[in-house]
Computed example of a mutant assay.
Amino acid sequence: MNATLVLRCAGRPVAHYTAGPVLARDHSPRPYLHPVTTLAGVPVTELMPEDHPHHLGAGVAVPDVAGHNFWGGRTFVRDRGPTALDNHGVQRHDGFTRLDRDGFVEELSWTAGGRVLLRERRTVVTAALSDSAWALDFTFSLTEASGQDLSFGSPATNGRPGAAYGGFFWRAPKEAADPVVFSADADGEEAAHGSRSEWVALSGRGWTLVFAGATEETRRDPWFLRAAEYPGVGSSLAPDRRLAVAAGASVVRRVVTVVADGRLGRAEAAALVSKAVAA
């Protein structure tokens, strides 16, 4: 299965969603959004780039779920560093419970080691904000499904400082120049990465992405942000210690992303975030 769903906003196609991609196992196969574009058609995601072939547009990826890799690529092992392991999991599409032109609700199973570790309900909706901006509202609920306590980790919890990625993740296009980075209260990659700012933004050639945590629980997660090495933004479910999930318990997060044509200033970005989160 490799069918692609087209999402629309204000009557225009703005995102393609592949629910059951056919991928190498070491990419941790999972559904993804790509391409995502501005209303004017400028691409703002990248799929399987040469620098990180396991980066799949926009979606959910966690490098350590009870020792299983749902991120792709090598696993960071304490005292060994990045290590190629046969520990990759798969996010399986179980079906859509709602499917509209502007969004969907999807059920998924996170499987590894011959068993289902997590059940996910994923809700994705588009919303128009202006003639040149729209919002992607992305909520995921991960419920422990094996009947046993488990935990989420990251390279940071496994011994690599500054690498607390895991959760919602958006890989943006790599261009000749690094994207401009700013947040609600600071400028630059160093200030935004690891912060709990209300929102963070990347601005490239003809586009701006503004990412906002839309619930109190989501806003507790620090931002993971890269610009110089590659352009990408995500949340950090396990920034400095493993996130414990009791048997049958759920982890729920909601990230709203403003997708705008052109380069936004801080005031414009803030205004659009407020409108998007309230939509």
Rank of each mutant, 00 (worst) to 15 (best):
A3G: 05
R8H: 15
A10S: 15
V14S: 08
A15V: 11
Y17M: 02
T18P: 00
A19I: 00
A19Y: 08
L23G: 00
D26I: 01
H27Y: 12
P29A: 03
H34I: 02
P35G: 03
P35I: 03
T38G: 04
T38D: 01
T38R: 06
T45G: 06
H52D: 03
H54Y: 14
H55C: 06
H55E: 05
G57V: 03
A61Q: 05
D64E: 05
A66W: 07
G67N: 07
G73W: 10
R74N: 08
P82I: 03
N87K: 05
H88K: 03
D94G: 09
F96I: 12
R101T: 14
E106W: 05
S109T: 13
L118R: 07
E120D: 06
L129G: 08
S130K: 14
S132W: 13
T139K: 02
S141G: 11
A145K: 10
S151K: 04
G153Y: 06
G153V: 08
S154P: 07
G159W: 10
P161M: 07
F168W: 09
K174G: 13
E175D: 09
V180T: 15
A184W: 11
A186G: 07
A192S: 13
A192E: 01
H193S: 06
G194E: 07
S195V: 09
W199G: 11
L202T: 00
V210K: 01
W223H: 09
F224D: 03
V233F: 09
S235L: 14
S236K: 00
A238M: 07
R242I: 01
G248N: 11
V251C: 12
V252R: 14
R253F: 03
V256P: 06
V259L: 10
A267W: 14
V273Q: 09
S274R: 15
A276V: 14
A279G: 14
